[in-house]
Design a protein around this nucleic acid. Structure first.
Length: 125
DNA sequence: CGATTGACGTACG
DNA sequence: TCGTACGCCAATC
């Protein structure tokens, strides 16, 4: 019988865990043009309000997923483009947002509350 | 398998 | 009101 090798991960079972990332990507793709959301809102929608960090981590690898995830529509709860440094160039994030009608000033989304798109409400789980 | 990191968020001083 | 510390969850080294 196959005793687990040292390289095998037994601390966690792979399965629905992968869904978490997929759910994150899916929700981000559902963000309407000209709207933005926050990591916490997505995490909360996935029944993990404290997993906001994991959502951010998921976005980190989002650029390798297809179709391309509009990560530029995801900001922190303050409406700050905290993830802009992950874009190349970093200013491209703001540029994309402005191209959608979202005004950005000093890495901050103007009228953030107005353009905020809450999946827990819009998707009405 | 254990420790560290990270595009966050909330609590505390 | 602002700044700092801690917690949470998953991935990576």
């Amino acid at each position: 019988m196959g005793i687990k090798k040292s390289k095998e991960k037994i601390s966690k079972v792979k399965g629905e865990n992968e869904d978490f990332f997929l759910q994150v990507y899916q929700v981000v793709r559902l963000i309407p043009k000209g709207r933005v959301t926050s990591y916490g809102a997505i995490a909360k929608y996935l029944s993990a309000p404290k997993a906001s960090r994991s959502v951010g981590y998921a976005m980190n690898t989002s650029h390798t997923k297809k179709p391309v995830v509009p990560a530029h529509r995801v900001v922190n709860r303050d409406g700050l483009l905290t993830g802009k440094h992950h874009f190349s160039p970093s200013s491209s994030m703001q540029k994309k947002l402005e191209a959608e009608g979202i005004k950005v000033k000093k890495d901050q989304v103007l009228n953030f509350k107005k353009v905020f798109w809450d999946p827990t409400i819009e998707l009405a789980l």
